[in-house]
Write a protein that binds this DNA or RNA. Structure first.
Length: 154
DNA sequence: GCCAACGTTGGC
DNA sequence: GCCAACGTTGGC
């Protein structure tokens, strides 16, 4: 059992969209470090969903990994924005996992507040210029955020 | 919308 | 294998 944080731009795909669909293949990851994290995910792992490129970026709710990593089909589709001509069916370069909606926080745990939590002092999440869209969350980070939303979780 | 920070690409 | 140029991310 491990914990992760996944960023999304709500304008493209929000936590509400995930809630509406129930479950979604998390495609389009095109960064090797993020892909390697995808590959180490297991069904049952917890996920914080983070909204980026908004007025108040932060953790907005929770999801769960419901599949292990498998090839991202968009890499093979020339019409896809995520097409990768350097990838092939027998040697796929990019993977995805399926993600299921779990809950929405009544209140966003903002990046600003995360910066003030000792638990997140060493997290790449709060480092300037960080561009990792998937990153591991420690047990203490997970528990701490949960403790802040315990009475506010929907 | 701007732009700093970063990862990737490709010429050499 | 270096590194400039480029494209993208994401806070602001």
């Amino acid at each position: 059992m491990a914990y992760w944080l996944m960023k999304t731009e709500p304008e493209a795909f929000s936590l509400d969209d995930l809630q509406a669909r129930g479950q979604e293949p998390w495609d389009g990851i095109r960064n090797y470090q993020a892909r390697n994290f995808l590959r180490s995910m297991q069904p049952g792992d917890g996920i914080f969903i983070y909204h980026s490129r908004v007025a108040v970026p932060g953790i907005v709710g929770m999801a769960e990994v419901v599949s292990s990593a498998h090839p991202d089909p968009t890499q093979f589709d020339p019409r896809s924005h995520y097409y990768d001509s350097g990838s092939s069916l027998d040697k796929p370069r990019w993977d995805l996992v399926d993600v299921a909606y779990r809950s929405s926080f009544t209140q966003c745990i903002s990046l600003d507040s995360l910066r003030n939590m000792p638990e997140f002092a060493d997290s790449p999440l709060v480092r300037k210029g960080n561009r990792l869209s998937i990153l591991p969350i420690t047990e203490s980070q997970w528990q701490h955020v949960l403790s802040l939303v315990d009475d506010g979780r929907q």
